[in-house]
Amino acid sequence: MAFKLSYEDDTTRKVTQISVSVGDGFPTPVESILDETFLLLPLLLEKTTLERSVRGLSLIGTHLQGISAHVPLKHPIPQIRESLNDDRDLIAKVLAVLEEKIDLPRRLVGINRDVLGAYYFKFGAIRIYWMPITLLSLTTKLSIEAITFVTLAHELAHAYSHVGKDIDGSSWETDHFASRDIELIEGIAQYYAERVCRCVEEKFPDAIKCFEAILAHQANEYTAYKTWVEASSGESMRQFLRSVSERVVRPPLFR
């Protein structure tokens, strides 16, 4: 990005601090979704267990003959196999409801803003919401660590694009930042969050996998940057950011 949270010239050095905290609770849109799915929430949280159960029942049904040599069976093998098939079909139908009708992961990340974390630009603060992150992890194959990393990268990208200093000490004036189109603000953050995830791919490959998995379900304002000509290179994106932010050089006292 080339913007820094510190600025230094011949007379002054100023560091802009961004606080990062972890918050409890669910944002209001998430609470609404949970209210709708409350009765099935225990099953949603154990979705992986249900998937394994289907495979386990199929495995037992296939090997009943061998099992009967070691485990006393109360009923004939055909009857047991039929019962296992019924159980497997029931679980498969429940999984279909969870995936097709409720689809909690898609609905979570499809909410427009501030579900997993938020950048409070007026206060210079980032908050990460551990409960939605945990819920998303439990209902997908994404790790808590990867979701947290992606969320923090996105929110820090907001902070750096807003208050980060260019080489001349300029930054994005707050009222102007707040007035810009949401697609622009989120697109910039997404672009740099993706670059961060790709930079650590060798050491932490789950980060970019998680980013792409979440991106696949996000609204247009989070995905539109993929079509930006300016996103073709880091330098062109930096110049684009300088242009759209109309960066202001503040007097030393206010830097």
Rank of each mutant, 00 (worst) to 15 (best):
P251E: 03
T151C: 05
A157V: 05
V249M: 07
I67L: 15
E31P: 02
V196E: 14
T12N: 03
V244C: 09
E36W: 04
H70D: 09
E202R: 14
L5W: 09
L215H: 14
L73V: 04
G110I: 02
S161V: 06
K93F: 12
S233E: 00
A146N: 14
S171R: 13
F177M: 04
I91A: 05
K141G: 12
V94M: 12
D87K: 09
K141M: 14
Y119M: 01
V163A: 15
T48Y: 12
L215G: 06
L116R: 10
I147G: 06
E201S: 12
D181Q: 11
V97D: 03
K226M: 09
D206V: 00
S143Y: 06
L34W: 01
D175V: 03
R81P: 10
K122E: 14
A216M: 08
L95S: 08
V94Q: 09
Y129W: 11
V97M: 06
P105H: 03
L142R: 05
L98P: 00
S137A: 15
P29D: 00
E235L: 15
S170H: 05
D166K: 00
L44Y: 04
R255G: 06
P252M: 00
Q239E: 13
G234S: 12
R13S: 13
Y191T: 02
T139P: 06
A219S: 13
R198E: 08
V54E: 08
D168C: 07
N85S: 15
A213M: 08
D89S: 15
L40V: 10
I91Q: 06
I167W: 13
V244G: 03
K93L: 15
S232K: 15
G23D: 14
D10K: 06
D89P: 05
Q190I: 00
A118N: 07
K165P: 01
F149M: 10
L184I: 09
R127K: 14
P76R: 00
G117V: 01
S179N: 10
H176W: 11
M237C: 05
I208G: 08
S243Q: 12
S6K: 10
I102R: 03
E183W: 11
V94D: 02
G61P: 09
I80G: 07
L64P: 08
R198A: 06
I33N: 03
I214A: 07
R247Y: 07
K209I: 11
T151A: 00
R13F: 10
Y160T: 10
K226Q: 14
L50H: 04
L41T: 07
W172E: 04
Y119K: 00
L5H: 13
I111E: 07
Q79I: 07
